[in-house]
Design a protein around this nucleic acid. Structure first.
Lengths: 219, 219
DNA sequence: CCTACCGATCGGTAGG
DNA sequence: CCTACCGATCGGTAGG
């Protein structure tokens, strides 16, 4: 997802033994400093929350000085919004890609739901998954205007689930009312951000299986 | 908890027409100022988050001056912990009361789960339900020591669910692995804090029904 | 509990 | 992007 042209580091003299690596030319000219800021912000916002994270924290994590984030982003709010927007666009793209794989349309609804759930867990818990969790847990920190803009993307994402849930409901494999079911199901998945530990416990595959077993009558 | 020997307030003339009501004798002597602070803090922490809430905000909401909260609580952290602890103790007490109603032990496991779910929704979304949501969504703001203390109460609360889920699993009414099922189920319920609107949409009863229909094979 | 206040920190900016 | 800096705000305290 992220371009990561890792340069060699031509430091002529090894001056430092602690601290993060100093920026080299390659890194600087790259125009990827904005991405570095986004990734640092996403990580810190997820770990400490938006309000408790300092723009100085973010700058340091991206190896910059305290004022430099404002060269790339107008404000701290703008950084938050950019993180969330990137998270949602990426999530949407991944779900759409999964739905466009050959043969997807012929799958049984239960199998289609399994794909949705699996991709959702990956987006929430897989590698590089800081962006969407920030979106989920910090949206109240957004100014109203941007909150509304985000809402459109969220609605789009949720709309991907509806036809599948309707089909399952019609077949009797999902008994709860469809719209409430969607809220409850997404809640069950989203909450995993709070407790999932990649270093121990279940794998994403096991999680997906458990969710399917929990929600569906037959599968 | 704190002695509160409040003097009478000999205002000879009514000077104000705006602003929240001035404390009267009854309110002041009460020793309930601490409770007022707790309720105000819970409300604001839930709405804006812990870090984004100012001790000045809280003081104003409890009709005090900016320094006064620190007469009742050692620090802002202490206030947060008190909110969370009260929330968990109340939730535990309500679940235990529900489990002690006559005939509860003879209920089918599905019916016992329904009680657990119903009380859980009330604790999260019913009147005066600011305390537990704060606990759910702000626990990362707690210092480690208090985070651990809270963890004990949470474990106690979760332990109430296990026997019921095990019984359901044995009967084939719950197919997912019990521990994962508990995490997913509580997640589905807890997430309702994000979207539930008491003024429109489903009632708590409908929510409970939908959750039961979603999770259980027969009921 | 209020008054008056302090030291630290924070988001953001000018100017290069 | 860095340097140097500002104004505002914040948690907390002394002293009554």
């Amino acid at each position: 997802m992220q371009a990561d042209i890792a340069p060699t580091e031509p430091e002529t003299a090894p001056k430092r033994t602690r601290g993060r690596p100093r920026k080299t030319m390659d890194e600087r000219d790259d125009g990827n400093r904005r991405q570095a800021l986004l990734a640092a912000a996403a990580h810190l916002f997820r770990r400490k929350g938006f309000a408790a994270t300092t723009t100085r924290d973010i700058a340091a994590a991206a190896d910059m000085q305290s004022g430099s984030p404002f060269y790339h982003f107008k404000s701290k709010d703008a950084l938050l919004f950019a993180v969330m927007e990137e998270g949602m666009r990426s999530a949407l793209a991944r779900q759409r890609a999964a739905a466009q794989e050959p043969g997807y349309a012929d799958l049984a609804p239960a199998e289609q739901l399994r794909r949705l759930v699996g991709v959702h867990f990956e987006v929430l818990l897989g590698p590089g998954s800081d962006f969407v969790p920030v979106m989920l847990y910090e949206s109240r920190s957004l100014p109203p205007r941007q909150h509304k803009a985000l809402g459109l993307l969220i609605a789009e994402y949720e709309s991907l689930w509806l036809p599948v849930l309707i089909a399952l409901h019609e077949r009797g494999e999902l008994r709860a009312p469809v719209r409430l079911a969607r809220l409850l199901i997404l809640g069950a998945l989203n909450w995993s951000v709070q407790w999932f530990d990649p270093k121990k416990g279940a794998s994403l595959q096991e999680l997906t299986d458990a969710a399917m077993a929990l929600f569906l009558k037959e599968s």
